[in-house]
């Protein structure tokens, strides 16, 4: 479980996150939604530790990421998997080498077992036939699937996805959403997805946090969203309403 308590983050004099609190349960797909510039990416970076908030706590179970030592943070990060907006595959490595990388770095198992695990992960995302290809030789959707395989290679407890559908067509987006949702339930990970794709919200959103101007404007389940009192959220999920 990940708990955010009163997160504040600013850049020089611009406050980007104002007192954001929330709780993300394991085994659920937790979505952070909001318009561009609402602070979604900054919040995600604060959660994974790429940025440090000025105030507040980021609790992984009971461990506060903000006050951790470098060593503790490094160990915690081995429990994390992340899928970046740009997939962020290592372009000098093949698909297989990309998935093998975290295993080679941190797994103490034999080379044979590591290769087996990498092949299992690639098979799980339907890419067992592309092992020897380089990232530049495969489509954007396939790159995202390789990124998912790499993220789950070390059986993470926390999975983060930053705009996983960015740049993908609706059909491929649906495949990626389904894959992330299935893996979340299968592995019991605490999954946080940063998105502004409403299809994702409708299909895989189990717990949704709506950010507006850097504040927690609304949060709840997909069912609750229909009855929300937040005008801003209504307009976000149905832009047509803004004109009526």
């Amino acid at each position: 479980m990940i708990t955010l308590k009163n997160i504040v983050k600013s850049f020089e004099d611009k406050v980007v996150l104002q007192d954001v609190s929330s709780m993300f349960q394991p085994g659920l797909t937790n979505l952070i939604i909001g318009q561009s510039g609402s602070g979604k990416t900054v919040l995600m970076k604060c959660i994974v530790g790429l940025l440090t908030p000025e105030q507040g706590q980021v609790l992984y179970d009971d461990r506060n990421l903000v006050t951790m030592t470098k060593r503790e943070r490094t160990l915690l990060r081995r429990e994390m998997g992340m899928i970046f907006q740009s997939a962020a595959l290592f372009d000098s490595m093949t698909v297989m080498q990309n998935v093998m990388f975290p295993l080679d770095m941190f797994s103490s198992e034999s080379a044979h077992r590591r290769a087996e695990r990498a092949l299992y992960c690639l098979d799980r995302v339907g890419l067992s036939n592309a092992t020897q290809k380089f990232p530049g030789e495969i489509s954007g959707g396939m790159q995202k699937r390789v990124a998912i395989a790499r993220a789950i290679a070390l059986k993470p407890r926390f999975l983060f996805c930053d705009e996983p559908n960015s740049g993908l067509d609706p059909k491929t987006s649906a495949v990626i959403d389904e894959l992330i949702s299935d893996l979340t339930h299968e592995l019991g990970t605490t999954t946080i997805i940063n998105t502004h794709d409403m299809n994702s919200v409708h299909t895989i959103g189990e717990h949704i946090l709506f950010l507006r101007h850097g504040k927690n404007d609304w949060e709840g389940s997909m069912k609750d969203i229909e009855d929300t009192a937040s005008q801003a959220l209504k307009e976000f999920i149905n832009p047509q309403m803004a004109h009526h």
Partner: peptide
Amino acid sequence: TTQQIDALEIMGVN
């Protein structure tokens, strides 16, 4: 710029 360094950091790699 393509976030490959961020990816390494998230994995816990120096």
